[in-house]
Amino acid sequence: MQPIFEVRNLKRAFGGLAVTNDVSLSMAPGDRVALIGPNGAGKTTFVNLVTGNLAPDSGEVRLNGETVTSIDAIGRVRRGLVRSFQVTRLFLDMTPAEHVALAVLQRDGRSGRLFGNFLAMPDVMDEVGQLLGKLGLRDLMHRKVSEIAYGQQRLLEIAVALALKPKVLLLDEPAAGVPQSDTGRIEQALADLPADLAVLMIEHDMDLVFRFAKRVIVLAAGAIIFDGSPSDVTQDPRVREAYLGSYANASHAA
């Protein structure tokens, strides 16, 4: 299958330090990939390079066969590369319905319309109801985001991302900061992601990684040191050395 998302020989250095060092990877539609690595491994820089918030020194990012390296972050989103944030970045004074509606209207090129209210647009409300319903947020759709629980805000982050109908979704620690009691809901939402969507998840919670990912990529000191199945990652000596530590001895094998 033709890759939907490719990174070729991506390099970026700060000062003399190579923070992203010749990283290449490729994803096909429907892939579920987890990107892991110890603190300082260069995950955030990698996400910024890929999303267009940071320019690489060299290398290439391709989306659906098109080279997007010189296209800005907004252009990449419009081409289907969507990210969620590690710390929720929502509009606290707005409602979940407004968040999803704004994403839907933006995706359809209607967010600049000066007249009309989304609450009276059946097609928009249909999508808003569907998406929020699927994530269990329908009853809260008209509450202010500042009034809903953190776990629900994380779910709303996913809803906003999905409303943009991405081809590639970068999830930056989707369960970060969520109380244990609510992670089940997030995992369910991840399991329900569209089958043809390529998902790259950056995550520290190894249980979640093993349950979600079909493929794990390990980044250490800016370079990929492992790219393979979850069952092999804990056995890889370089990974054990660089990252997993005592976790490798645990009985987790997906």
Binding site: T51, A73, I74, V77, R78, V82, R83, F85, R89, L90, F91, L92, D93, M94, E98, A101, L102, A103, L105, Q106, R107, R110, S111, G112, R113, L114, F115, G116, N117, F118, V160, L164
Partner: peptide
């Protein structure tokens, strides 16, 4: 009408977090 329109909603969102709006493609 304008402040309640999709454009008005977009502007309120920009006021709160312009970076987030960029990541929504606007």
């Amino acid at each position: 009408l304008i402040v309640r329109s999709p454009f008005g909603m977009l502007c309120r969102a920009i006021k709160e977090d312009p970076i987030r709006i960029r990541s929504m493609g606007a």
